[in-house]
Simulated assay, not measured.
Amino acid sequence: MLFIVSGPSGVGKSTLVNRVIARVPNLVYSVSYTTRPQRPTEVEGRDYYFVSRREFERMREAGELIEWAEVYGYLYGRSRAAIERELEAGRDVILSIDVQGAAALRKLSWPVVSIFILPPSFDVLAERLRARKTDAWPSVEHRLSIAREEVWHYRDFDYVIINDRLEDALALLEAIILAERHRRERLEEDLRPVLHTFERSDRVEES
Rank of each mutant, 00 (worst) to 15 (best):
V11R: 01
S96N: 06
S32H: 06
P119C: 05
L125V: 08
V31T: 09
G12Q: 05
F3L: 03
F50M: 04
S14E: 02
K133L: 09
S207I: 12
W137F: 11
I117H: 06
D164S: 15
E188V: 13
I66V: 10
S114M: 13
L172M: 06
P119Y: 05
E174G: 09
I176N: 08
R53L: 05
S207G: 01
H182R: 02
P119W: 04
E149R: 10
P25F: 06
I115V: 04
V124P: 03
S121A: 09
P111E: 12
A81Q: 12
R106Y: 11
G45L: 00
P193Y: 08
E88Y: 01
P119R: 11
T134S: 13
I177W: 08
S109R: 08
D135V: 08
S96A: 15
A104P: 09
W152K: 02
E149V: 13
G101T: 09
L105G: 05
I97T: 11
P119L: 02
V5W: 02
L75H: 04
V113T: 05
L27V: 02
I117R: 11
G77W: 10
K133V: 06
A103N: 08
S139I: 06
V113Y: 13
E174I: 07
R184H: 08
E57Q: 02
L27K: 01
P37M: 12
L95I: 03
P193I: 14
P40N: 15
Y33V: 04
S79W: 11
H153R: 01
V11W: 01
D92M: 10
K107S: 14
V112W: 04
I146S: 07
I115P: 13
E205R: 02
P40F: 05
L191C: 02
L118S: 13
F50L: 02
V31F: 04
K133N: 15
V5E: 04
F122W: 15
G77A: 05
S79T: 06
L144G: 14
L87E: 15
E206A: 15
I83R: 02
L172R: 07
E174W: 00
S6I: 00
L144S: 14
E42L: 04
L166Q: 08
L118K: 13
L166C: 09
F116M: 09
S79Q: 11
R200D: 09
I21Q: 09
E44D: 04
Y49Q: 06
R91L: 13
K107P: 03
Q38T: 14
L144K: 13
A171M: 06
T15I: 01
R200W: 07
P8M: 03
W137D: 14
L118W: 12
R54V: 03
G12S: 05
D158K: 10
L125E: 15
E205S: 06
D156F: 14
L178H: 00
E185C: 15
Y76L: 11
G7I: 01
V43H: 11
